[in-house]
Design a protein around this nucleic acid. Structure first.
Lengths: 155, 155
DNA sequence: CTGCTATCGTTCCAATTTGAACGAGTTTAA
DNA sequence: TTAAACTCGTTCAAATTGGAACGATAGCAG
């Protein structure tokens, strides 16, 4: 267990202990690992991760989602979303529709074709998440992991 | 607690329970959160996350690292690394050197200037990781989280 | 109503990323 | 030794991304 100190300017920063460092690396590692696997799997469906995330979000909101709200939810800029929404629209997977109460806003929603594709992809995705994530964690520990990570994810 | 089943082709995939889903979202959320914060902080040093990762890796290996090995470790393609190594080289932060035993290989390593920059960035990075990750987890749970995520990250 | 400010989604451009193809050097096995 | 297969890092073109600027609309305060 190391407790190195690093003097920089007026600040003293306690270095991460071995366990803390290991936890940090594990988090990054787990994220990378999962992302790599998901990315590769999605290739079978000609989808990028961003595109899949868009479809998945839309899948749980039949009434559609505005571009800005969607961009905030996913980790993408608005312009990036505009681009990807265009890609998906060209493939007939999503559609833009105007909004009654706000003339600036655009609601993005799944087309039937988009729904169909999502219905095919989702099971494979769930299976992968199980194999790589859920099944590797002792069920007794899952709640602890969930709560801990939720703390990190939360505000 | 939901236990939906989805029939797709010949496969039956058990849907994720609420807790499993929450754990999955928490993992993604935590990763995104951390990445966003780190990216923003690194902007103060004119570094992208990839560039910082390169410097950090090189920091722990004074003898240098080959491009392919480095690309594998980080989650980047070889061509992406070639580009970023070029950027860092232009700024005098890293240097390429030939390798004795293999004429194809190139060893990337930190210059003194690169070491100096890393020494300035690292404490701030550690501080951020503490605030956003370590300090948000009950110390008693840290080992559980570490082990669980290590299982996910591992082969 | 009338500015003033905030938000919407898009466009444009520059930076980055990827994947395929490549020349060069290395390793393997006959 | 030699041919085939593999690995090295780079180059190139195409796809994607982020950020600033923009026109248009909403919301708010006076």
């Amino acid at each position: 267990m190391s407790f190195k100190f690093e003097q920089i300017g007026a600040h003293v920063v306690r270095a991460l202990s071995d366990e803390e460092l290991a936890a940090y690396f594990a988090l990054r590692g787990a994220g990378d690992r999962l992302q790599r696997a998901v990315t590769q799997q999605l290739r079978d469906y000609d989808l990028t991760e961003v595109q899949f995330s868009i479809l998945a979000q839309l899948g749980s909101r039949a009434d559609g989602i505005g571009m800005s709200e969607l961009a905030r939810g996913l980790v993408v800029t608005k312009s990036g979303l505009t681009y990807q929404a265009g890609q998906l629209e060209n493939r007939g997977l999503v559609a833009r529709r105007a909004r009654k109460d706000d003339d600036r806003a655009v609601l993005l929603r799944l087309t039937p074709k988009g729904k169909a594709l999502l219905a095919r992809v989702l099971p494979a995705h769930v299976k992968l998440v199980r194999e790589l994530f859920i099944d590797r964690i002792d069920p007794a520990d899952l709640a602890v992991v969930r709560d801990a990570l939720a703390q990190v994810a939360g505000d």
